[in-house]
Design a binder for these strands. Sequence first.
DNA 1: CTAACTTACGGTCTTCGTAACCATA
DNA 2: TATGGTTACGAAGACCGTAAGTTAG
Lengths: 292, 292
Amino acid sequence: MNFRDLEYFVQLTEDRNYTKTAQHFAVSQPTITYAVKRLEAELGVPLFIRDQSHHQLDLTLAGQEFGEHAKAILQELVTAKADIVTLTQQKIRFGLPPIIGTYYFPQLAKRLIQQNLMSHLQTFEAGSATLQQQLQSGEIDVALLGTVDPIEMAQIKTITLAKTDFKIIVSPKHDLQQQTAIKFAELKKEPFITLKEGFVHPAAFRKLAAINHFEPQIAYTTPDINVLKGMVHENVGISFLTELALKDDQSVHTINLTDKNQPHFDIVLAYRPQVNPLMEKLIDELQQPINL
Amino acid sequence: MNFRDLEYFVQLTEDRNYTKTAQHFAVSQPTITYAVKRLEAELGVPLFIRDQSHHQLDLTLAGQEFGEHAKAILQELVTAKADIVTLTQQKIRFGLPPIIGTYYFPQLAKRLIQQNLMSHLQTFEAGSATLQQQLQSGEIDVALLGTVDPIEMAQIKTITLAKTDFKIIVSPKHDLQQQTAIKFAELKKEPFITLKEGFVHPAAFRKLAAINHFEPQIAYTTPDINVLKGMVHENVGISFLTELALKDDQSVHTINLTDKNQPHFDIVLAYRPQVNPLMEKLIDELQQPINL
DNA sequence: CTAACTTACGGTCTTCGTAACCATA
DNA sequence: TATGGTTACGAAGACCGTAAGTTAG
């Protein structure tokens, strides 16, 4: 059975005139005849009373009954299509800080594409602090955030996806290039290249400085991680970065910090709870373990 | 769009395995592939997540949504077919007295056939008195009844369809064959051929006799109208019949009765009121005017 | 004769099966 | 290599348009 035949039939129950219905669908009149015949053959009952003398086309009882069901079926199909369009057009406003976007998100992205979720994301790129505010004000729906301290926000649910350490990086030409671990306090004399970033690195850096009761010497501040790494490589100074941004990087030497109570760079999934299949699926997928 | 594709799809959402679904419908596996492709093309969205590393065939959100609608559509179709079968098999127990069946009903029958109603009738042939009882006891649903007096029955609705006169018939050889009207009292000396019929003719005959204070002479009683007419034709006696049974009959001569308060042969439609489209339609059709 | 539906016939688009192909475990 | 899905192609069938046929007014 064919949906087109049902449409012809339903229209015919309203027009009560084969010719008119044919014109309505811009098809030839016999097309309607055959559609009705197909339905009658499949159902095994006549749907119309074929009375030559009767100039008015009449439905049989079975025809009336079937007409109601046919309308319901067509309506259900229309609804189905409309619902799918709605689903397809649905967008999730997704906040992504640059560092996480560059070093963490790409591995998630592959999975999101496979699950047909990427096309639903409207990405907002901003620092974690800005994104926190936007999340709270409702400007975005979900965000991946980098944080030093646990996040507490009313109406916002948070899930920690990964905890990473901060590392000290130095040039291969630097004296420290043979060390694998060091205390922050030992770096009092070193000039630092720091990241001009919205939230996390400055906060962590200040925290470490406060714990160690000294004010590190800032040689230069850049918003670009590659510029920062380049300057460290050229031994303009040393720096302080999440290990996330250092994966497989051979241009600089990485040194662990041995400080107790040292800050960590946590990647947190934050969102406003919603009853929404698309959001649910996204939240679910973002929590899937990935290889850092 | 095709219902078959929907069936394939719904089954596939349960099987999560193209091959299994193909086997379920005894078709080749590519048939399922194409069915899904057709649906996806028509809806404009992927329904399944085509993950090369096929651990498990997964539905997209659109697929889940559409699956629900598809099930609803298929269920509606199943219901439609079941309802039509129920409608088709529905029977109305229909009481029909012999005289009305022979002389009145045939004209109705043509219309009932055109309206696809005849196949729903289960006819019970019996005298009007018997049918009245069966109607009241619920053994039949509708009846056409012949009556002399108005029918009063609890729970039974009655509609008079036609009023016909009783006539006197005589042989063409009989002395009265030149008369067109007569009083019943003038027939005291005549031998009557009477109808051995369930209810109406004997009752009417007794009523006329009572009004005229005499006991007519009964020459012979037969249950068969043609036998009766034959005997009248051969001048064995005269008789008394509803005009209904005399239409176009050339074998006997018909004489009107001039008595006041003479009984009439009423054709009454009687039924127990029901909320039932089929019954409604039958009652409606039976009331359509016909040419007597 | 006209209006309206049905039947006949031929062409075209759909659908399906076989078989070959591709990807993953 | 075995399992499971997709693509290619030819055959069968469904669908539709033109045109002719039928029936009632």
